[in-house]
């Protein structure tokens, strides 16, 4: 199983990776992308089982990544891990086809409960 973490912050990618390990996903292959453009190229080359994407990023943001995947008929499971967790953004994410939205700051338990439903 492969999980792709998309975030322009190296610090946050490290934190998400650590949280995945603590949540019991230490055996999964973890890949990282710096923004939506890089993530899209990586997905085209080798589709991951799940994408965990930030929302606000330069180049291509998380929502644009999700829309690009849809437009190109790439059926990839994607959830957001973002500092923005207002009800409007959760609704927008759902409407666009995201599986979930985890708000920062998050806990290991949040990852366990959320990912158990999609992996």
């Amino acid at each position: 199983m492969k999980i792709l973490i998309v975030d322009d912050s190296k610090a946050m990618r490290m934190i998400v990776k650590r949280t995945l390990r603590q949540a019991g996903y230490e055996d999964h292959v973890i890949e990282e992308a710096n923004n939506g453009v890089e993530a899209y190229q990586m997905i085209q080359a080798s589709a991951p089982d799940l994408v965990l994407s930030d929302w606000n990023m330069p180049e291509m943001n998380g929502l644009q990544l999700l829309q690009t995947l849809k437009q190109n008929k790439l059926e990839i499971k994607l959830g957001f891990v973002t500092s923005e967790g207002t009800p409007e953004m959760k609704q927008k994410a759902e409407e666009e086809g995201a599986l979930f939205l985890i708000s920062k700051p998050f806990t290991v338990e949040t990852f366990q409960q959320t990912l158990a439903q999609v992996l």
Partner: peptide, 29 residues
């Protein structure tokens, strides 16, 4: 990078808390 991430999370928390009064807030980078 860590400081930028911290202030990003901080602002996300503010946006969530003020959502009822300010529902059009847009965060920058």
């Amino acid at each position: 990078d860590s400081l930028r991430e911290l202030v990003n999370i901080l602002a996300g928390g503010v946006k969530r808390r003020l959502a009822a009064q300010e529902n059009t807030l847009q965060l920058g980078l």
